[in-house]
Design a protein around this nucleic acid. Structure first.
Lengths: 156, 156
DNA sequence: TTGACTTCCATAAAATCCCATGATACTCCA
DNA sequence: TGGAGTATCATGGGATTTTATGGAAGTCAA
C-alpha cells in the first residue's frame, strides 16, 4: 500500500483553495477517491486528513456497535460530526472551510505533512516547532531500536 | 534476498539527477519497486535510502493505533514526514531535492554506500572520513576489550 | 441580482520522458 | 586467443508533460 510521505508546502489563495500535492492525490485516486476527509486534530493545532477508507476503519474499530445506543463511544461521534469530506476539483484543489483554517492558524501557506496512512495540514512555522520536539524524542528511540536497515549500527 | 553491497560514486548533474547504481536498482526491482525512499540520517550528515517495504514495516508496527490519537508513536511521524519517495526514471536516475543534498553536503559527486538491506548517500569525502573514524573506533574497542575482558565495553 | 461556489482556461516553473553519446564490460566466433 | 560486434551503464541535453497557481466565466440558490 502506498504511504503518504514527506512534507509539501502549498499556497492558500484568496478564495481559500489549496492544491493537494500531486503525490497525495495519486494515492487517494489509487484507492478510488476523488475527495479528502478533513477533521481537526484532537489538540486543535492542525487538521487531520485522510481518505474515506480510514474513517471507515476507525468507525468499525471504535464506534460501529450499535448505532442508536446511548453508550456509543462519544469519541467516534465527535470524529464523525467534526469531519468533512471535500471534493478535489479538476485542478487538484480543495476548498478548506475558513473556520477550520483559522482554528489551525493556517493562512497563506499550508503544509501537507505525510503520516503514512493519513496526513495533516499545518501552518508551516507551527509544524516546524512541532517537528523539532518530535525529532528530539524520536532520535532517542531510533537510536535504540534502529528501524532502518541495519542492525545496531550505532550510527552515531 | 539480495543485499546492497559495495560503494559506488556517481555524478549529480545540473538538474540534480543521479543515477542509482544498476546493482541497487536491480535489487529494488526484484522487490517490485520502481522508487527509492530517502530520509535524512539522524545525525544529518548523510541520507538513508531503502525500498518502500521498510517504511511499510514501520507503519505496520503502529498500524493498530487510532490514526488520530495522540499516543501514536511520534518517531514514526518524524520518519513519515521527513521521508520522500523518489521515482526512478527510465534511465535509472532519481532527482534528489536540493535541500536534502545540501543538508548532507552532497554536491557534484554522490557516493552510494551499501548497508545490507538499505543504503546511504554520502558526500564522498565525508564518507571516507567517517569510514576512517569507524575503523579507529573498532580498533580501539578491540584493544580495550582484549585488555579488560569482554565486559569492558567502555564508551566510544 | 447578489454572493458563494464550481467549472474552465491560461501560464510559468518544475518534473518527467526521450534520445544521443562515450565508456566499459561481455559474447562469441574465427 | 584475440578482436570485432553487442549489450549495459552513466551521463548530457532537449522536448514534452505535469503541477501549482492565478483569474474568468458559468451555475445555483436565496
Amino acid at each position: 500500500m502506498a504511504l503518504f510521505l514527506s512534507t509539501y508546502v502549498n499556497k492558500v489563495d484568496k478564495k481559500g483553495r489549496v492544491s493537494v500535492p500531486a503525490r497525495f492525490r495519486a494515492i487517494l485516486a489509487a484507492k478510488g477517491f476523488d475527495s479528502v476527509v478533513l477533521l481537526p486534530t484532537v489538540k486543535g493545532d492542525a487538521i487531520d486528513a485522510c481518505g474515506m477508507d480510514v474513517m471507515e476503519r476507525v468507525m468499525e474499530k471504535i464506534g460501529g456497535f450499535d448505532p442508536f445506543s446511548e453508550d456509543r463511544e462519544s469519541y467516534a461521534d465527535a470524529l464523525m460530526s467534526d469531519a468533512i469530506e471535500l471534493p478535489i476539483d479538476g485542478d487538484g484543489r480543495i476548498m478548506v472551510p475558513l473556520d477550520m483554517l483559522e482554528n489551525a492558524g493556517i493562512d497563506g501557506q499550508c503544509a501537507f505533512v505525510g503520516r503514512g496512512d493519513s496526513f495533516q495540514l499545518w501552518q508551516p512555522a507551527a509544524f516546524e516547532v512541532r517537528k523539532k520536539q518530535a525529532r528530539t524524542r524520536a532520535a532517542k528511540k531510533r537510536a535504540s531500536s534502529s528501524e532502518l536497515g541495519s542492525d545496531g549500527e550505532g550510527n552515531e
